[in-house]
């Protein structure tokens, strides 16, 4: 007779537990272009001249065009992908629960960004897995530019 109090162990739990604490580094640097910054700024309606006009950005003390604050999602998600591809859950089972960014300096055009992502913790609630992933985005010198934190919910497949 089955033990009614013990649910069968979710195979995803073992996969996820194995990944906790392991750093994953993006295989290639992401090069930030002026065109991509302008394109992203247009997509969120950011009209600040420092996102569009190099002279304005330099006059404001920046090396080149400044990326809008949530542009950091592009390099951050490249790191997140390194973790989530190992979890193996299909995209349509993943829900973005929370997102945070702390900018040590603004991302600017010309940056070559490498992301190190780590699954920090995980909890299972009612068959869904809540994964907290940190992603440290660093420049070519290795200095951190942005620290991102994402909560991804992997929806339970059963039922």
């Amino acid at each position: 007779m089955q033990d009614a109090h013990r649910a069968p162990r979710d195979p995803l739990t073992d996969v996820i537990d194995e990944l906790v604490g392991q750093p994953f580094v993006t295989p290639a640097a992401y090069e930030v272009s002026r065109a991509k910054i302008r394109e992203f700024a247009d997509a969120v309606g950011e009209t600040s001249p420092i996102c569009h006009d190099v002279d304005a950005a330099r006059a404001a003390g920046h090396r080149d065009l400044v990326a809008p604050p949530t542009f950091a999602v592009i390099p951050a998600f490249r790191g997140l992908y390194e973790v989530m591809s190992r979890v193996g859950a299909p995209l349509h089972q993943q829900v973005h629960g929370e997102q945070g960014f702390t900018h040590h300096r603004p991302i600017v055009a010309g940056d070559e960004l490498v992301t190190t992502a780590t699954l920090e913790r995980t909890r299972a609630v009612a068959g869904n897995h809540f994964l907290t992933v940190s992603a440290v985005v660093a420049d070519a010198s290795g200095a951190p530019v942005t620290t991102a934190r994402s909560v991804v919910v992997v929806l339970g497949g059963a039922s």
Partner: peptide
């Protein structure tokens, strides 16, 4: 974040956002 940029006077003034 665009609203924050508008209020603060530029996208480079938004240091963190969660």
């Amino acid at each position: 974040a665009r609203a924050l940029s508008t209020w603060a006077g530029g996208p480079d003034r938004v240091v963190s956002f969660t």
